[in-house]
Design a protein around this nucleic acid. Structure first.
Length: 259
DNA sequence: CCGGATGTTCACCT
DNA sequence: GAGGTGAACATCCG
């Protein structure tokens, strides 16, 4: 999916619908509604409400509605994109041409003027009323160093821990590989085995990764990204990158400077 | 044809 | 209980 940087781009593009009344809810893919809620109930809950804010928590985009109405949580799976008033805020992601096809509209809100579509070829995304945020960790961009260090006291590999949304919300496979590469930390190292200097450096590199890749336009704009393939070389020292599954995801790392 | 892809969840182990 | 693994979800791409 889109990771937190992409969701933040979606959130900004959704700000233009704040103040609009939801006239119609369309659910062409009923599997897209999480929790067995019926499409009719979703419509009843949202139609006639006004969107009062668009906020983000990790990879979750949340629209709040007027008059103590329910919030609408949106998750974008691996390939979901948000299209607001016909504008796709991210045009150079994987599957970008397919995403232009309204065939993949999975969920839509319509207003007097304009509309919001979730478009998702692989259909792994979901929408949900009043999503439970209590089981999510703090957003990666808002974490203090103390919270960060505390979150990493675990016997899981550092990469698995960083990607665990219940501990830190927002980091995905690409951002995590990039920040570990920048920090010079081996993805398989047990997270509680780092020393304080390493926690500090990791925290600093997480913030830098979010800031720099955010400014460049997304999770796929990391220095490591173009080398994440078999035969990829480390752009820092020229070593052949290792490829391994860590935390259930394909992981690339440099055997020379990531220890 | 096969493996793999920015994610989440669940069953089944250790 | 914590955490690992593999599968499933659905579709396209190289």
């Amino acid at each position: 999916m889109p990771e937190m940087l992409e969701i933040e781009i979606y959130r900004r593009s959704a700000e233009v619908i704040v103040g609009r009344e939801i006239k119609k809810v369309r659910t062409p893919d009923s599997n897209y509604i999480k929790g067995g809620v019926r499409p009719a109930n979703l419509r009843k809950a949202l139609e006639g409400r006004t969107v009062v804010s668009a906020r983000r928590h990790g990879k979750l985009l949340i629209l709040e509605t007027s008059d103590n109405g329910p919030s609408l949580g949106m998750r974008f799976g691996m390939t979901g994109v948000l299209v607001v008033d016909g504008v796709d805020a991210i045009s150079d992601m994987q599957y970008s041409s397919l995403r232009r096809n309204p065939k993949w509209n999975s969920f839509s809100l319509e207003f007097d003027e304009g509309q919001l579509h979730m478009r998702d070829p692989r259909r792994f995304g979901r929408v949900e009323l009043d999503p439970d945020e209590s089981k999510m960790g703090p957003d990666a961009a808002d974490m203090t160093f103390k919270e960060f260090r505390h979150a990493l006291q675990s016997s899981a590999p550092i990469k698995a821990r960083l990607m665990n949304q219940a501990v830190i919300a927002g980091l995905g496979n690409l951002l995590t590989d990039e920040l570990l590469w920048r920090a010079g930390v081996n993805p398989s190292v047990l997270s509680r085995s780092l020393d304080d200097a390493q926690y500090k450096n990791l925290y600093k590199q997480m913030r830098a990764t979010l800031r720099i890749l955010g400014a460049r336009g997304g999770s796929h704009r990391g220095d490591l990204h173009e080398f994440r393939h078999r035969d990829g070389i480390c752009p820092k020292d020229g070593s052949l990158l290792c490829r391994e599954t860590v935390g259930g995801r394909t992981t690339y790392w440099c055997p020379t400077h990531q220890r």
